[in-house]
Amino acid sequence: MKKKRAKWGLLFCLPFVIVFLVFQLYPIIYSFYLSLTYQESNNTFTFIGFGNYTELAQDKVFWKSVLNTWKIWLMCFIPQLIAALILAVLLTQYHLKAAGFFRAVFYLPNLVTAASIGALFLAMFSWQTGSVNNILLALGIIKEKVNWMSSPAFAQGITSFIQWWMWFGYSSIILTAGIAAISQDVIESSIVDGANSWQRLFKITLPLLRPTMVYVLVTSLIGGMQTFDIPMTLSKGSAEPNKSLMTMVFYLYNMAFRNHDYPYGATISYGLFIIIVVFSLLFFRVMYGRKDKE
């Protein structure tokens, strides 16, 4: 009976398999092949081995884009994790009636089109008409309007802030779910043993939350390394000032789709992939240490 039905399992999975192979796996493999070629003309590619990768390793613009991406990600991720942790712990410990409402509002920015968010913040931080300058001026915090988007440091800072704004609510929901999953028995027995709430936080909640934090860290790393939408709209497609908003994917986009250099674009995408894989593994290692092997 079971055997007779076995073909149905495969049949039901077939659409997934076909579409995955054609639209996901094949493009990935084809990209790799392209990264090993030289583009003679629009449609002729000659195999050259790893030449593009040695070029990439010496490409100053690429390393600048790596640095920019990391700066923007770190300036966003660290405050994001701190805010999310504080929120998750507080909202779980004090059973506030309005917790659900606040969580819902904090998550809202995550759902909105990044292209619109970039345009919105660009308008808010615009030099002459932006609301931020108007408010700071009205409050007497600044004496003259600041030209935010002409400074690389501000441009990167604003990008990080936007990403923080979009993601802290999401992270806090994930961490809340992680805290909720911690067994109530462990917590109760610690109360019986006389642990106060600080001890509980540092000795029980945070250590047991480690897998969830690794999840947040690694997914944020993967997303952060692919940052593109906000820098694109915030800089009106220019990556300026001083190429400070040139992230890795932005560089990939410029090379492949503005300069039509597909092999080099594909090489950048694999460079990006290698960085993601290496650091994901590293973070897993650091966060779990040797205990994982038990």
Binding site: V22, F23, P27, Y30, I222, F228, V249, A256, S269
Partner: peptide, 20 residues
Amino acid sequence: LLMVSMMVPGQLGIIGLFRL
């Protein structure tokens, strides 16, 4: 295949998808 599909970052195959 399902796991590969979940883990691979979306931009990796973008140039391949364009050429395809």
